[in-house]
Design a protein around this nucleic acid. Sequence first.
DNA 1: ATGGTTGTTCAACAA
Length: 260
Amino acid sequence: MKIASWNVNSLNVRLPHLQQWLESFAPAVVGLQETKLEDERFPDTALAELGYRSVFSGQKTYNGVAILSRSPATDVQIGIPGFVDEQQRVIAATVDGVRIINLYVVNGQDVGTDKYAYKLRWLEAVHAWIAAELQMHPDLVVMGDFNIAPDDRDVHDPEVWNDRHILTSTAERAALQRLLDLGLHDAFRLHHDDGGIFSWWDYRQAAFRRDMGLRIDLTLISDALRARCVAAGIDREPRTWDRPSDHTPAWVQLQPPTAY
DNA sequence: ATGGTTGTTCAACAA
């Protein structure tokens, strides 16, 4: 089964791209971020016509997350338990026995701002929650727009994207490392050692044409899923389409569980 | 980057 994450930057605008991509890529599960849609406007009927069920948590203008799946999604959790937050950035569900956590991590604007402090607080809350989720669900995938590039291989220019810059700062990378230390693995890095493979390119300065990108869309898998993970990658193609999202899908492929 | 582009909403914010 292929499991993917895609920040669509407005599902209203990107629905045709999503439909085309679901038909060609055929993931079993996809987590969406930045749907920017109130729940009443979520296009669940159009997606059902392609064979996908939807669970979602959205709001007007900003944020918004969803999980689409071919099999039913159960035990749906919206938001981080015990963390009061009006921003709709988190949805989790169990699909085909795999616990799926879909995150739209806070961007943080700039190091030292209030939004940066919120990002770090939010990541602390996510850390505590995921620690508990791992106890209950050994087969765990944490996917999403992390708004953190793990290391220098994941940025086009490490001089610009340095330890004092948003998305690459020391505290952000330390927060990501603390998540990994719970027993999670950056699935992409289990299958690729090379740098220069990105998932996001700024709309400005013709960044995509010049391949000035970052890899900030990640899929973390638990220790227990590691043996089942046979491939991982980033599908650049939707970024080449007309009027694209600034992000492109990141994915992993899991083998079925071994039967005894 | 006092920059540049896109989305939501319609002037300003977020990314």
